Simulated scan of single mutants.
Amino acid sequence: MSRFSMYDRVQQIQENAEAAQVDKDDWIRDKADELARDFPECAMEFYRPSLRMSPYRVGLDSDAAQDAYAIFVESVCLAKAKELYGEAKFMGDVA
């Protein structure tokens, strides 16, 4: 086997590994987005009238609360999507 064909073979292996990583990342991102759709749009939607606190008093109406909520939802959904990817890979549902 010539060194040029060996180089081509190594390049192909690297490209396949990169493509597999991109596919994995896309699958996880798509699943995380799907899971995120099940969450309420904003932090204020977690307020229940039966609670004896004001949502305004605890800051649920602030932009900072909404930003923190968005980070929370993204973190939870990404973690769950990664877990689901591992399960799907184990079951042979993804390549």
Rank of each mutant, 00 (worst) to 15 (best):
R3G: 02
R3K: 05
F4G: 06
M6S: 13
M6F: 14
Y7T: 09
D8P: 00
R9Q: 12
Q14K: 15
E15P: 00
N16G: 11
A17P: 00
A17N: 13
E18P: 00
E18W: 10
A19Q: 13
A20E: 07
Q21E: 15
V22P: 03
K24S: 13
K24I: 15
D25M: 10
D25G: 04
D25F: 07
W27L: 01
R29T: 15
D30W: 06
D30V: 08
K31V: 04
E34W: 07
R37K: 12
R37E: 11
R37V: 07
D38V: 02
D38T: 10
D38E: 11
E41G: 12
C42N: 12
C42P: 00
C42L: 04
C42E: 08
C42A: 08
A43H: 00
E45Q: 10
E45V: 04
F46W: 11
F46I: 04
Y47E: 01
R48H: 14
P49D: 04
M53G: 02
P55Q: 10
Y56N: 07
Y56W: 08
V58E: 00
V58R: 05
G59A: 03
L60A: 04
S62G: 05
S62N: 08
S62P: 02
D63R: 15
D63E: 14
A64T: 08
A64F: 04
Q66T: 02
Q66A: 10
Q66H: 10
D67Y: 02
A68H: 04
A68D: 06
Y69Q: 03
Y69V: 02
A70Q: 06
A70H: 01
F72P: 02
V73L: 05
S75I: 06
S75M: 09
S75Y: 07
S75T: 14
V76I: 09
V76D: 02
K80C: 05
K80D: 08
K80M: 12
K82L: 14
Y85N: 02
Y85T: 01
G86F: 08
E87T: 01
A88D: 09
K89V: 15
M91F: 07
M91I: 01
D93Q: 11
D93V: 06
V94Y: 01
V94C: 02
A95E: 13
